[in-house]
Design a protein around this nucleic acid. Structure first.
Lengths: 195, 195
DNA sequence: GTCTATAGATAGATAGAC
DNA sequence: GTCTATCTATCTATAGAC
């Protein structure tokens, strides 16, 4: 499943990441992780204290990766609107959902301060990053001055997270794109007669 | 836990509804349902074929209830914008998440055509209901004619579903309200210089 | 309709040999 | 570091007595 040069702890973390994404924390068993990683029972408990410990390592890495990917789009050259648009239209594995956002529906993740922390921090970082861009857009006259940057940032993020829900409900990525187009129309300078 | 006049099947369904909301399908065991309902093992399997059968009954009822509640707000008197606003600002148990939407993150629900159907239908109904209202608003000049009603409806629904994600990530309902306020500002006739 | 008994499988982890 | 053995509890369900 993984390169033979990948260490056992690495394979365990990567396997956990994939299973958490697909089945969530509650739906992911140590046994499933071991089989997916091609590692034995004893091997997993040698490198990690248990399921929560391994999940924490996996969640932290997934959070970091998501953040880096988002920064790659949000930090690229372009006007504020263009960068928000690039983020919204970014290619996504829509039907798999958000690997970080989906964890908020996991009761055991939410119940654990340690497991929830990286989720909270990632969402929060994204919100602030987006708010800064919207603020920039307001200063440049690309977004209406009456808009609250923090609010719009939350709306953008919520549309993405909710878009995954609509897509998974219908079994098609189209619903995600539809929601994104609606938001872009509302945000569009052209839509406000300024384009 | 429930009225002594509630039948055993009723108590089982209600218990399943609550546990599905709180822990999802994967995280809800027959045993937990039985204990919550105050019913025995044999009793549950007498009235229902098994966990999927009981879950289907519970999901169907939750879906119906959500739809009725939404219609109560969306079908009330008022302008299209007012009705959308009432829906968005509606009192919600934000930190518990959407009892229907959260099921889309449940791998076993999505994997089952039967269990997914009521989820899909509910989300779809809501989208069309909202689209009709937005269309009405366009005709009345309350929403810009350039907007696509289906898209805006999807954006509204996605903001709500994503709002739950933001709220649960941060552990506070405030994030939900922030996202909603952002969307209302974008939708607002006043924000477009028409108010 | 409800209860107890039973059952194979999995969950999550520990112990100790190698 | 990895492997096998072992363990307690839970999962999901069936069988059959009452």
């Amino acid at each position: 499943m993984y390169s033979e040069f990948m260490s056992t702890p690495e394979r365990l973390i990567e396997s956990t990441r994939e299973l958490l994404w697909e089945r969530g924390y509650v739906g992911t068993s140590p046994k499933a992780i071991q089989e997916h990683a091609g590692a034995g029972q004893g091997s997993m408990y040698h490198h990690f204290k248990g399921k929560p410990d391994l999940a924490l390592a996996a969640i932290r890495r997934t959070a970091e990766e998501l953040r880096a990917g988002a920064e790659g789009v949000l930090g690229a050259p372009g006007s504020p609107y263009e960068r928000v648009e690039a983020y919204l239209r970014r290619e996504r594995d829509v039907l798999r959902g958000c690997p970080v956002g989906r964890l908020t529906m996991d009761p055991d993740v939410i119940a654990s301060a340690e497991l929830r922390a990286p989720v909270d921090e990632t969402i929060d970082w994204l919100r602030e990053r987006l708010a800064g861009i919207v603020e920039e857009g307001k200063e440049q006259g690309q977004f209406a001055p009456s808009l609250d940057a923090e609010e719009i940032a939350a709306t953008i993020l919520a549309t993405v997270q909710g878009g995954y829900v609509l897509a998974r409900a219908s079994g098609s990525p189209a619903a995600f794109d539809t929601a994104v187009r609606g938001l872009l129309a509302l945000l569009s300078p052209a839509g406000r007669g300024l384009g």
